[in-house]
């Protein structure tokens, strides 16, 4: 079992790396979205390995089911051409842009990895077991306020989105 878990972890990490690379480098936005979906599924697999099945299912339900469909709508509604190319006329970029992007990639990567490796936290080898009933109890007893607040945030975001688009349409 130990070996199987390691193999699964390596596989998921590989999918995350490749999917992430496709997500940020693909010319076509639809391909980038497919890369994102692959990455999200691999992260859901990591949640399963961490013994958090509810979070894994929520990851698939919320991210793949709702957020990715929303992003697909964004691509569809803003693009006249069916190809979904990111830039209509891709131009060459100056060298300092490459340098900046690589710097932005490396600076947090090196610093955070250094912190993680040099100052390891006290950890247990086997993930804690949490039942769904305990999660529901936590959501309704000690953390009720955050639960209510997130629903208010979602409502405000939805109303704000409708309002943003509505005003523009009324002026036309």
């Amino acid at each position: 079992m130990e070996v199987l878990a390691k193999i699964a972890f390596g596989m998921y990490a590989l999918i995350i790396l490749c999917g992430g690379a496709v997500t940020v480098t693909a010319q076509s936005l639809v391909r980038a979205l497919i890369g994102l979906i692959a990455t999200l599924f691999a992260v859901a697999g990591m949640y399963l390995l961490l013994a958090a099945p509810l979070i894994a299912f929520m990851q698939i339900l919320i991210y793949v089911g709702a957020v990715c469909v929303l992003i697909f709508f964004a691509i569809m509604l803003t693009r006249a051409s069916g190809e979904g190319k990111e830039a209509a006329t891709p131009t060459a970029r100056p060298a300092h842009q490459y340098a900046n992007a690589v710097l932005v990639l490396l600076a947090p990567a090196v610093f955070l990895s250094w912190v993680i490796i040099r100052h390891p936290a006290k950890s247990v080898p086997v993930p804690a077991k949490v039942t769904v009933a305990e999660l529901g109890k936590g959501l309704l007893e000690p953390y009720t306020l955050s639960f209510e607040l997130i629903s208010v945030v979602l409502l405000v975001a939805m109303a704000g989105a409708v309002l943003l688009i509505w005003e523009k349409r009324r002026k036309e």
Partner: peptide
């Protein structure tokens, strides 16, 4: 960290 850095 890898996911975060790819995103940034």
């Amino acid at each position: 960290v890898m996911l975060f850095c790819i995103g940034i």
